[in-house]
């Protein structure tokens, strides 16, 4: 049984049909990437998975349980953490408070404290800025905070929505290195990216989404080598 199984998913925003019969699976331990251009429905897919968007049809099964109809906080408790598009940092709260909020679904105080220290080792900048308003961090630092905060929930599955968006190339490298590290520590990852090049390098498998529909799926390497992907998403050919 796959860790995450999505079957025939449809979602609407009013009259806009954002997702059409989306099928997608993520196996335990994988990095799966979902690539596609602007407005393809990548974020909408993640929003359905974390309970922010109610699907109009289809099934979502995580760890053998249906997620349909569950509120976001209940889904976090089942082990899915979502670092959303635009990072969603609480700018007026401190860096440390943001991390603490990431662990809201947990009650093991000692474990939470230990994990906060661990985050500050993994992301030294968060340690340095612990008491500072998170809104004063740079874009890259906020992204680290968003990832660190999502990890504070100790998720089985981490949903990342365009973690490289708007970041300098060097920072992008760092972020992808961190994604690989987190995965090696046992966290399954579903990565949404417009930066198909980087995403297909770090992922095991990929899906290509176009106007709400899955157009292709394959091993990341195969996708990266395919003509269609190279033309449409890698700017080659």
């Amino acid at each position: 049984m796959s860790l995450l199984e999505v079957r025939g998913l449809d979602a609407h925003y009013g009259a806009i049909h954002a997702l059409q019969r989306v099928d997608l699976t993520v196996e335990k331990g994988e990095i799966v990437t979902l690539i596609g251009s602007n407005g393809a429905g990548k974020s909408s897919t993640l929003r359905v998975l974390s309970g922010l968007l109610r699907p109009t049809a289809g099934t979502v099964t995580f760890d053998g349980r249906s997620l349909i109809g569950l509120a976001p906080h209940a889904i976090v408790r089942l082990g899915i953490a979502h670092a959303p598009e635009g990072r969603g940092i609480f700018g007026t709260l401190t860096v440390k408070e943001n991390l603490e909020l990431g662990a809201y679904s947990r009650s093991d105080r000692a474990g939470i404290r230990a994990d906060i220290s661990r985050m500050m080792v993994r992301f030294p900048i968060l340690g340095e800025r612990a008491g500072q308003s998170a809104g004063t961090l740079s874009g890259g630092e906020q992204q680290m905070l968003a990832v660190g905060r999502a990890l504070m929930a100790r998720p089985k599955l981490l949903l990342l929505d365009e973690p490289s968006l708007g970041l300098a190339p060097q920072i992008v490298q760092t972020i992808f290195a961190i994604i690989r590290e987190i995965n090696q520590e046992g966290v399954t990852i579903l990565l949404v990216e417009q930066n198909a090049h980087m995403a297909l390098r770090v992922a095991h498998r990929g899906y290509v989404l176009e106007t709400g529909e899955i157009k292709m799926t394959d091993d990341a390497r195969v996708l990266a080598a395919s003509d269609e992907v190279r033309k449409a998403y890698l700017g080659i050919g």
């Binding site: 976090v76 408790r77 969603g88 609480f90 007026t92 909020l101």
Partner: peptide, 18 residues
């Protein structure tokens, strides 16, 4: 802290497990 988070953004607060 949860109240302050909700007052900033309901959706993001939900994603925190609140």
């Amino acid at each position: 802290k949860a109240m302050r988070a909700v007052s900033i953004d309901h959706n993001i607060a939900g994603l925190m497990g609140i």
